[in-house]
């Protein structure tokens, strides 16, 4: 949201003060149903939001973020809508396409099925964090060289997955690459070029 700051963790004091003042609510369990009822009674929704949000600290591409978010926000939506890191894509939102692939503590995962709050204290790497300054990561360069994409929408997920694939040691043959890259759907059908790109990076033997 444009009017939200990245560091929008509400002051702990204000939350406590609110809870103290609001005797009506402290008497009730803080379940969503309660909050809903609060909404029904037209209680100021900013208070309702305070109930629902919890603090979260994340490291994204080397930057630390102190956030306050609803538990229902996925890591994918947090990256795209809150942190404006739109390189990570939403293709299905159900773990069935791989467009949302990011690295969490170095491991590739589907960010659409990960609740953001489950990543407390973790380091997230997205496509925006892969290059070093102006120098492309070798996998990014290889994707360009081998034309491993067309529309480009699945590409960030493919590249994040490809880097992990090499690191995992699952890129030692074309058959392995194909199998271990099958969690990333490319509807334009760039698969053979993707395989060539990964194979080249694997064979170059450099650090990925």
């Amino acid at each position: 949201m444009a009017d939200k700051k990245t560091n929008n963790c509400p002051e702990k004091d204000s939350r406590r003060d609110f809870l103290k003042q609001s005797t009506l609510y402290t008497a009730l369990a803080l379940t969503p149903v309660t909050v809903l009822k609060a909404a029904d009674k037209k209680v100021d929704e900013r208070f309702a939001a305070l109930f629902e949000k919890i603090p979260l600290t994340l490291n994204v591409n080397g930057s630390k973020h102190a956030l306050s978010i609803e538990p229902r926000v996925t890591l994918l939506d947090l990256l795209r809508e809150e942190l404006q890191l739109t390189g990570t894509k939403k293709g299905c939102d159900h773990g069935q396409c791989g467009a949302c692939t990011v690295h969490v503590d170095g491991v590739r995962v589907n960010s659409c099925l990960s609740l953001a709050v489950m990543n407390e204290g973790k380091s997230i790497t997205t496509i925006e964090g892969l290059a070093t300054g102006d120098t492309l990561h070798p996998m990014q360069a290889a994707f360009i060289k081998h034309d491993g994409f067309q529309c480009g929408y699945c590409t960030p997920g493919q590249i994040m997955s490809a880097v992990a694939c090499v690191r995992e040691g699952h890129a030692k043959s074309k058959a392995d690459i194909r199998e271990y890259m099958s969690g990333n759907i490319c509807r334009c059908g760039a698969y053979p070029n993707i395989v060539d790109a990964i194979e080249e990076v694997q064979k170059s033997g450099g650090t990925v």
């Binding site: 739109t86 390189g87 997205t126 290059a131 994707f143 960030p156």
Partner: peptide, 9 residues
């Protein structure tokens, strides 16, 4: 547009 597409830009 390759660089834009591989960097998420």
């Amino acid at each position: 547009d390759g660089i834009d597409k591989v960097t998420g830009k």
